[in-house]
Nucleic acid binder design. Structure first.
Lengths: 148, 148
DNA sequence: GGGAACCGTTCGTAGGGAGAATGGTGGATC
DNA sequence: GATCCACCATTCTCCCTACGAACGGTTCCC
């Protein structure tokens, strides 16, 4: 194995994306923490807003977590008045979750915070670079099946 | 607050980077798991290889973890024969860590695995897109003070 | 030479998520 | 139409990871 020909592991995309993602998550978490929620709550609301899922089990699959986690997330959001748990009249086993107006406002605040972080993050990039980065990340996100 | 003008939170860079980073970390972890280590071990070896730190406390700061974590990581790597703990003769309180030849080989294997993942990840991107993505991520990585 | 500061290690602890067990509901089968 | 099986949400328990504090050993400063 010719080691000299390989680049440093720290310069690879997966490695840097891993570290960069951790930093991004931490910053986003810090940004939404004053709102009383964490990134997972935002993800749940985003899925709801997009109409990508309604029952908690669907939510769990979309978010890539176990059903019991969704319970806790929903508990929190319900306590904040951001989502409503309604028994599905067609199937009373399911809970049909829906965003309340307060939830939409909350989600909008999170979006605003994220947008501000974006600007801060890409400050050292040229507009063209930021644009291409955004595009490439979008491709990778859809490719890896991230909740859209 | 005019919500309609804002993009979806899921399309923001911080949000996608967070999710993408988690996936990248998971894939990288799965790739190095057969080698008996996890991403943090790779990071430690990379810092050592770059000569960016020698004492465990410096390692901790560079890696962004607590000193007690470095103990566990070093224990594992020492058991694998990848690093050596040597008392610093100048200051016998410190441990001067150094990569062994086996450690360099192990690190090279990790780099190879990461490179393979990179190719897999950027398969759906054009060479030009992949290039610009790599560049932009590099800028962000150095900007956010990621272990180089 | 004695006390304060530092380094590495160990121990205890808290937070997050996974998985199994429980209660309630719907559908199929006979 | 009654019974059994499958499904959804919830709760409970366990594990894993990282943090923070406490503890020996060592060095530096006065």
């Amino acid at each position: 194995m010719s080691e000299a020909e390989l680049p440093e592991v720290t310069t690879t995309l997966v490695y840097r994306l891993g570290g960069l993602g951790a930093i991004a998550s931490a910053r986003f978490a810090a940004a939404v923490e004053p709102l009383g929620i964490r990134p997972k709550h935002v993800a749940l609301m985003a899925v709801l807003s997009a109409g990508a899922a309604a029952s908690q089990l669907e939510l769990a699959q979309t978010l890539g977590v176990v059903a019991s986690v969704v319970v806790g997330l929903t508990d929190r959001l319900e306590a904040l008045g951001a989502v409503e748990r309604l028994r599905d009249p067609d199937d009373r086993r399911r809970h049909r979750l829906s965003l309340t107006p307060a939830g939409r406002t909350l989600l909008a605040s999170c979006t605003a915070a994220a947008t501000a972080l974006d600007a801060e993050l890409t400050a050292s990039l040229s507009p063209a670079e930021a644009q291409s980065l955004h595009r490439a990340v979008g491709v990778l996100a859809s490719e890896t099946g991230l909740p859209a």
